[in-house]
């Protein structure tokens, strides 16, 4: 028996009929084609499936879509557009914080949520904030640089 969930996804209201045990990453990718949300570990450890739920970075592979009633969800597709990137996206491009790109949506959304709470994080705070996002290419140095650069761009 499906559950009807009304929520806002990237600024648009959606009414989704979902299975009780369906995860948010499945709904976003398979029902809505939002493939910027990556599914990798499926256990909440790697951070590739991170989305913003009411501004908080959460793992969509361990969230039930049925629990998203009334929530506002932002995926990487809703953060900026190719012509008008969000400052965090711009910073990752400029500082070379992207190699294969698989972890990037999760990194950027986690960084965005972190910067909203702490606009000028230290190196240690960035590493702690991104400690749940795994990147197997970059070695993290350029990702930390990217977050600093984003902080500068977003400073009032």
């Amino acid at each position: 028996m499906s559950v009807e969930v009304t929520c806002t996804i990237n600024g648009e209201q959606h009414v989704l009929p979902v299975e009780p045990a369906e995860t948010l990453v499945e709904s976003l990718r398979l029902r809505l084609g939002l493939t910027g949300v990556k599914k990798a570990c499926g256990t909440g450890d790697c951070g590739a499936c991170t989305v913003l739920v009411d501004g908080e970075a959460l793992r969509s592979c361990i969230l039930l879509t049925a629990s998203m009633q009334g929530k506002s969800i932002t995926t990487i597709e809703g953060l900026g557009t190719p012509d008008n990137l969000h400052p965090v996206q711009e910073a990752f491009v400029e500082a070379g914080g992207i190699q294969c790109g698989f972890c990037t949506p999760g990194m950027i959304l986690t960084a965005k949520a972190m910067l909203d709470k702490n606009p000028r994080p230290s190196d240690a705070e960035i590493m702690e904030g991104l400690s749940g996002n795994l990147c197997r290419c970059t070695g993290y140095v350029k990702i930390v640089d990217s977050v600093h650069r984003a902080a500068e761009k977003m400073a009032p």
């Binding site: 909440g44 951070g47 959460l58 904030g129 749940g132 996002n133």
Partner: peptide, 9 residues
């Protein structure tokens, strides 16, 4: 415990 996004929830 876990990482900040895990501890959030």
């Amino acid at each position: 415990i876990g990482s900040p996004p895990i501890r959030t929830i």
